[in-house]
Design a protein around this nucleic acid. Sequence first.
RNA 1: UGGGGUGUCGCCAAGCGGCAAGGCACCAGGUUUUGAUCCUGGCAUUCAGAGGUUCGAAUCCUCUCACCCCAGCCA
Length: 552
Amino acid sequence: MENTPISNFLQTIISDDLAEGRVAEVVTRFPPEPNGYLHIGHAKSISVNFGLAQANGGRCNLRFDDTNPEKESQEFIESIQADVKWLGYEWSGEVRYASTYFQQLYDWAVFLVEQGKAYVCDLNAEEARLYRGTLTEAGKNSPSRDRSVEENLDLLERMRAGEFDEGAKVLRAKIDMASPNMNMRDPILYRIRKVTHHQTGNDWVIYPTYDFAHGQEDAIEGVTHSICTLEFEDHRPLYDWFIESLPVNSRPHQYEFGRLNPSYTITSKRKLKQLVDEDVVIGWDDPRMPTVSGMRRRGYSPTAIRKFCDMIGTTRSDGVVDVAMLEFAIREDLNENAPRAMAVLNPLKVVLTDYPVEQVEELVTPCHPSREDLGERMLPFTRELYIDADDFREEANKKYKRLVLGKRVRLRNAYVIEADEAIKDEAGNIIEIHAHTIPNTLGENPEDGIKPKGVIQWVSAAHGERAELRIYDRLFNHESPDKGDNDFMDHLNPESLSLVKAAWVEPSLKSAVPEQRFQFEREGYFVADRYDHSSERLVFNKTIGLRDTWNG
RNA sequence: UGGGGUGUCGCCAAGCGGCAAGGCACCAGGUUUUGAUCCUGGCAUUCAGAGGUUCGAAUCCUCUCACCCCAGCCA
């Protein structure tokens, strides 16, 4: 992958550290907890961490922060690895797990106890909350705070041995219950959880908390720049406290950046899970989901997602990014790289009355207007065709550039035709158009000088293929669905999915393979569904429409 | 109201004492067998606000205001 030059506050810090010799090699890490699928916000974190390592000749680890077995699973571990790979990144060495450091972490906990810097606390969760104080009032010391080192050592060992019930005891750091930073009020290092861990099985009944684990994991791996989001800023003093209190063999530093908030979307794992659990969407990889796997199924490319992350930059300010930028990124990639094809979503039959009944012309057409390397495909042209019902009107003003009775239009990549008659049923609905071709207009303008004003797509009625088209729109119709008093469930877009069960598409599409992307001309970008599409059943998902500046 | 942060065009974002990059969006033209693409031009006398320092401030100082995060044995 190309090393695009990055310029942001993190790169500045790294450049200085390298220049001053504070670090010899840049080591970062992407540390997801395997308790859900990756979403666009994670994609940004991945882009930041892997991107910085790449740009500075360093390395980036993939490390599962699996310190809370209750919420985690192997399913998520696998999906996360697949997503990172799909995005085009390669982690350094083997996949890491916080759980492989559990023994080291425990040894360090013992060390803190021996130093008189940690103690076993008997307060239950409710009591601990009361003792913690509030944002404006100092907390009170736990009655367990002054236990002897010997007693603490004994109790900790027995916690590990499973002698106590869940919640009965915790190990806490002895720092300062009056600290204005809540994280420093004797934070919890270990809690008792008698559950099977997806990696370590039943080896442990006590598990380290994020705070006690994260910085030490970084130190063990030699991470130099531990990059996370802004909400962890208050944890940095604690992160440093552990690193300075423990005999670790490297000195990582934590830096924070502002998390990504795209408009019209939510990125809370809890809320995304709710959408899945309540069947609002069909799963984590529903094409409407802002998950990496959802965007993949929707037709977004890794290139576009990475481009988007580069476009929005990395800063410490917290804002809402217009999804139009994401849409721009995917259009830019697909405009350049997606082969063109024709599809008719709302079919209206056209009979070319002057065209021989049995005749079939094989029109060889480029797959892309400027990319010759994308090849050609064959378009069969016949007497009966389908065009989109929206592309015909009995009468219209001059702004309308499609087919009108008595007027001409260009059939894309084929002839100019002129509409003669609209055939209607008893109810007055137009069911068929009779038209005729203008001679010698294949690749040429009409000889009489009367040029058609517009161009429309078409599919041969005799050769077209039926296809199911899934038309997606944004999942929410509110710019910030979950900000302030908003209940995101109140802002679901009822039209986020509409099915076109029987569109007509050009025959070349029969050979499309799952995940192949196309531009259906004048309609938008579509991708053959990753799971449901086959040559026997054509299924395409709409990724994004073409930019539309026509307000008529 | 304790602590930690952030405030530069509708949105994102450069800028780090010398006189406001860029992208998205938008608007106006041009090209065009996709009302797409592409091309050209427009789009902050002003940097949350008020004072101050300075020949000179978005950049330094002071105060004010707004918004975000923190009281999980979640991460």
